[in-house]
Write a protein that binds this DNA or RNA. Structure first.
Lengths: 211, 211
DNA sequence: GCATACAGACCAACTAGTCGGTTTGTAATA
DNA sequence: TATTACAAACCGACTAGTTGGTCTGTATGC
């Protein structure tokens, strides 16, 4: 029970292959061949190929959900909470890029019983963001005319879309991307008063008053 | 050559099925059964299942690329151009939601020769957006400190992500969504001076000066 | 009579999953 | 320490089912 060598190797190999060729573009035979294992070894560790897919999904969504909850608890104002959540969300791409790609590309192929569990967590994640946005509007930090749903889905969309273009060795560091996203998002959410607040505008790339 | 009855029926059926079950979750047999055709009919109209997938991709990207170019030509200022492009982009979801879902989900499974053609158009689309953003910065309508790439990819991401949540019969009309997106995007891009410009701020949900 | 449009039985290839067997680790016993 | 006992980890040939694609045949229009 202490050794998980093979299981981890299978996951890692599968992740790399799934990211490149898609879930259906990779056979179990190929996975085991590529990581020097066998069919038997695979099915000793996983009930099915579907379970492997579920495992990959679950590792990622569980991690990112925890991070969001931590960020929510750690900070006390809507703006700080939102920025922290987004930063953590963006950061995840540094470690879990293949997971996220599989998560966003192959979720449709999850077996119903697995899909349900994943969707439940995905929904909770969304609700955290909606919650922060609502709090921000109530606190007059975010504009009142915003649609919480639309703003939330926009944020989730722009960050998630990173899986299509983010390269860990690209010209921008993950922290730069996170900062740029926060800048864009806050500019679109903040009220004029909030932008003049020193404490809040520290998350912007350039202060409003600078010009 | 005038009658395309069957071909269109096949595409329509395939689209519905692909959207729901994914490309690999739908067999050719199922497609032809569901639209009252036959294997022979299918392979008379398409060289292969892959070609059908390519066709779906091409119809959508060709359409949306044209719309963006039209919008670019029709308007003369960066802000107007951007808003028109985004509006047209969002509107497409009304007609082509299944196409877009397939486009965003199954592109990885395109055969290399097909993938190349699609990517070329996808790239051109991206470049139009980047171009407008650059023009906006030069014209001092958009903030100078923005990263054109990041801002562009954010926009593309937030709109494309609609395929995950947009329901044609949802509570918001497509025009409302387009307006809300434009509002969010402009707030994140515009300079303070530009926001004070009557002509430009007409694209915002609420004028800056209102409060 | 000839091409186009379509039908449907058929095939070859592929793939997830199985199953009997082997190796490896480990703990109890002598 | 050596030996036995047992279970978990792992192997790989095999299978049963599925799927994209073919091929022969038919009907319809020009």
């Amino acid at each position: 029970m202490v050794e998980k060598q093979l299981k981890d190797r299978i996951i890692e190999t599968a992740l790399t292959l799934f990211e490149k060729y898609g879930y259906h573009g990779v056979t179990v035979d190929r996975i085991v061949a590529e990581c020097g294992a066998s069919k038997g070894g695979f099915y000793h560790n996983f009930k099915s190929k579907d379970e492997l897919l579920y495992h990959i999904h679950d590792v990622f969504i569980t991690y990112v959900l925890n991070k969001a909850q931590e960020a929510y608890v750690k900070y006390k104002t809507p703006t700080k909470r939102l920025c922290a959540i987004i930063r953590s969300f963006v950061r995840v791409f540094h470690i879990y890029k293949p997971h996220i790609t599989v998560f966003n590309q192959e979720a449709a192929y999850l077996k119903p019983e697995y899909a349900e569990k994943i969707n439940e967590k995905r929904e909770r994640y969304k609700q955290i963001i909606f919650q922060v946005l609502r709090e921000g509007i109530e606190a007059k930090q975010f504009r009142a005319e915003l649609s919480v749903e639309l703003a939330g889905l926009s944020i989730i969309g722009m960050v998630n879309w990173m899986y299509k273009w983010y390269k860990p060795d690209g010209p921008m560091s993950i922290e730069q991307i996170a900062a740029a996203f926060n800048d864009l998002i806050l500019h679109s959410l903040l009220t004029e008063e909030a932008k003049r607040d020193e404490d809040i505008s520290s998350f912007l790339l350039s202060r409003v008053g600078d010009e």
